[in-house]
Amino acid sequence: MINRQETGAKSCAGCGAKLQTASADMPGYIPEAALDKEPPVCQRCFRIKNYNDAASVAVDNDEFLRLLGSIAGTNSLVVHIVDLFDFEGSLISGLQRFVGNNPVLLVVNKIDLLPKGINPNRLLNWAQKQTKAEGLKVVDIVLCSAKRNIGFERVIESIGRHRGDRDVYVVGATNVGKSTLINRLIRDYSDLERELTVSRYPGTTLDAVHIPLDDGKEIIDTPGIVYRHRMTELVPRSVLGALLPDKPIKQLVYQLNAGQTLFFGALARFDFVEGDRQSFSIYASNALQVHRTKLERADELFANHKGELLAPPSKEELEEMPAWTRHRLNIRRGTDTDIFVSGLGWIHVNGAAGALVDIHAPKGVRVLTRDALI
């Protein structure tokens, strides 16, 4: 049997993992009979592309960080892609120390998920403010939707303006749309006939993928950083279809009195504890069911109906997830505030009266307040 080392320099054309025939539950596994196919594709990528099914594989997050840290010793343009729907959850904290003095271009992807009519200048100003608050210095910020081909020409123009005679490293958290955007770059600016594996599963790209450009330089697609503070990393794969929006979000507005609760399936819970009657706007996947009840009944309702009336996930899937943690948030009077739950979406507090709220979410999921996006 050919072992992992004996496959030589062959890498999967879809995810970049080194091909091996020894272990089906490790990255890069390929049946021996498929090794000579061009381009070679590992079994995982084959199943994603043909059956929308991804097997679990063991990927060391320290290896991701080692690859990211190696960028500092290069002369490159770093393109950091973030997900507008999960901005704080997908921004790489401390990116500056990984990339050294290399310039950073921030590409804010998935703007197509926001309701129509949002002023792009407002989005850009908001992204600039949030990026500065995170301590990230960037040469430019570009809004786009790689999937819908919105703003892609501005991405290309900005890369061309800031790249010079450099390679391009593309970095980002899992599932922010890196491979979708790079596939567009390959089709438009390279003779290489290949396509990176694209799916809604976190961690699709498993190793650095080098794509030669026509001018002799390269685009290097790095593995996605796996952040466990994102709900998308904690839920079973069967839940991702309901959690990840694939079309513009429809704003849901609830007029609530203090003492009322909103359940987001069985994934999270919002309690309006104290405050005057006011409206709260929900920005989450249209496929996710929101259920309203009285706060005094919330514990009983969850205990009796989780995984059924309150779903997803199912009862069995809930057992695989961390228990909920309560986050108490005091929304100050007169502020325009979002309550952000990483991977789930956000709740906009519309009233100017202030509010005391509790968010219940799986332990480890990032919950915070921020200046309103919309």
Rank of each mutant, 00 (worst) to 15 (best):
S56F: 15
P27S: 05
Q130L: 07
H291D: 01
A372S: 11
V57Y: 03
D371V: 03
F270P: 00
T204G: 05
N286G: 07
K37Y: 04
H348R: 08
V79I: 13
I48C: 03
G307I: 00
H210C: 10
G14T: 02
G224Q: 04
A303G: 11
S314M: 08
N149I: 11
V253K: 10
R277P: 09
T7H: 00
I2S: 07
L373D: 01
N257I: 05
E153K: 15
K49E: 15
F340V: 11
C15H: 03
A55N: 08
R122V: 07
R269W: 08
G203S: 07
Q251H: 08
A9K: 13
L95M: 02
Q289A: 12
M321T: 10
M231I: 12
G28L: 04
A208S: 11
Y51H: 14
L206M: 08
I30D: 04
A33S: 11
T204L: 04
R237Y: 12
V138S: 00
G73H: 09
K315S: 13
L206E: 05
W126S: 00
L35C: 00
V357H: 05
N286D: 12
R200H: 13
Q128T: 02
A9G: 10
L252S: 10
D276L: 13
N119P: 04
R122E: 06
V41D: 00
N3L: 07
L181W: 04
L206Y: 03
D338R: 00
G172A: 13
L256V: 01
R237E: 13
F272L: 11
L143I: 04
E32C: 08
A298M: 04
H210Y: 14
A146Y: 01
K363V: 07
K132V: 12
D188E: 14
D60G: 07
L288H: 04
D299T: 14
D299M: 09
V226W: 00
G160C: 14
L192V: 14
V99I: 12
V290R: 10
E319T: 12
Y254V: 02
L295W: 05
W346L: 06
F64T: 01
F280I: 06
F85Q: 01
F152W: 14
V78Q: 07
I159L: 00
F263I: 02
V209N: 04
P312F: 10
L368Q: 11
S70G: 05
I339M: 07
Q128E: 13
F46I: 13
E218S: 14
V273N: 05
D86E: 08
G354P: 03
E6V: 03
R44E: 09
D271E: 11
G241S: 15
I2T: 09
P212W: 10
H162F: 15
I186G: 00
